[in-house]
Amino acid sequence: MRLMFLIIFSVSTLLAKPLIASEEAMHFVQEKVNRVLDVLADPSMDENKRIKEFENEILQIADVNVIARFVLGPYAAKASPAQVTLFTRAFQDYALGVYRSELDDFGHEVIQIHETKERKPGDSIVYTTIAGGAVKNKPREIKWRIITINNEPRVVDIEISGVWISQHQRAEITGVIARNGGNINAATKMLCAQTTGCKVTG
């Protein structure tokens, strides 16, 4: 009887685990995106505080290290740790700069979560729609790729209008590196050149 109970318990635990991971990913997106939207819509914050808060939230949601290594593609393994660190810093500054330039357009949107699909344990896609605010005439379907990193869910890619952003960045970045003889410093320099106030030096 005891053995039977243990078997049933183990099986149900194994089956329930992906469900819990998927739900965790769903709650993560709901909570974090709402937090970002709250920051953007908060009239009590001045511009500088809003930008700082926004950047803090983004860095908590996304794992820049993992994304930076992904966009380097096969070149990540060939580069030195120092090169990867420099690239990651330049990539982070660039990405935040892009978001910063778009901040004024957003803030009054709402997110609707539809479903979550688990790709494999610790790797889920959350399907959402962003409506209202800047997209009130054309709600956008957005997919979030959530990966569990060090027991914490993190966004590593998002898909808008059929385009996965990290995958697109990888195509562009690896293209630049390939055209520069495999030197990832070329990509670091290029990212820096496109970022206002870039402080990364090779």
Partner: peptide, 17 residues
């Protein structure tokens, strides 16, 4: 618009610095 989840590329989480 339907995903084939297997076709999505893997993210290398194990070698984060």
């Amino acid at each position: 618009g339907k995903d084939n989840l297997e076709d999505l590329p893997d993210f290398n989480v194990g070698t984060v610095q």
